[in-house]
Amino acid sequence: MSAVLSVNGLSVQFGALRAVHDLSFEALAGQITAVIGPNGAGKSSLFNLISGAIRPSAGTVHFDGREVTGLPPQRMLAAGLSRSFQITNLFFELPVRENLRLAAQYLEQGQGLLRSLSRSARAAQRVEELLAQFELTRNADEVAGFLSHGEQRRLEIAVALASRPRMLLLDEPTQGMSHADTRDTEVLIRRLVRQDGLSILLVEHDVDLVMDLSDHVVVMHQGQKLAEGAPAAVRANAAVQTAYFGEAH
């Protein structure tokens, strides 16, 4: 398989803090690549660098064979890369359907905001697909703020997929979820890769979930790459156990 995302020597510094330093890794197409590490390891900064929210001080990002270093989020979306956020990021006062419709207007190629809803056929079709796919049809007209936490997180993933990206960055998608909702999200993520052919880069604190779900794991510690490899090899790595779990087993 070919790399859909390549990060090479990526660095960013905030004053004296080196949030990410000389980080390199690849994420293969059609696979789930996870980034783990203790709090403050630089995972969220890495996502912000890749998605264009902040510009790196050094290094490059290549996506789908093209250098995209420092491109703003809207251009990364146009290139086929979308992301969710660690803190749920929805229009809580709007219905579920409207949250999805606003995201799906992207498919109208810049003309969606000027068209009446009845003429936004591509966006409307995508909304109905997402409502069914994410089991939100019965909640379609419910205000997003009234959904359960698990439903809100599911809706946020659906919003991120409205533009039909080729790669999705998921920032702690199971944060605050119950055990049952976490398992449902795991099934959903697997289905997005196996059935829809999506490539996923995942930041997640639930280590058991990461090890069960991922094809490849990158471990960060103090802004740098500590280790990477198959889940079993990473979990058995003594340096990872010391840095991440607090002791070597």
Rank of each mutant, 00 (worst) to 15 (best):
E228D: 14
A132T: 11
D171W: 00
T185W: 00
S11C: 09
R166S: 13
S44E: 11
T242F: 00
V4S: 10
G112S: 05
E172W: 11
L170N: 04
A236P: 01
R115D: 01
H62K: 09
A27L: 11
S178E: 09
D212W: 00
L226C: 06
V203I: 15
L201D: 07
V61H: 06
N89S: 15
A144Y: 00
P56K: 11
S11R: 12
N48E: 12
G176L: 10
Q105R: 13
A78N: 08
I50H: 00
I32F: 04
V35A: 02
F14M: 13
R191H: 10
M167L: 15
V127P: 02
L90Q: 11
L161T: 03
A16G: 14
S45W: 07
M220R: 03
Q175N: 14
V234A: 08
E204F: 04
L113Y: 11
L201G: 04
G59Q: 04
N89T: 05
H21S: 15
D215N: 15
L213K: 01
L209P: 06
G80W: 00
T174S: 15
E135V: 12
A27T: 12
L188D: 10
G30D: 03
L107G: 13
G223D: 08
L226W: 06
E247Q: 14
F85M: 05
H221R: 01
G246S: 09
Q224A: 15
P231Q: 09
E186I: 03
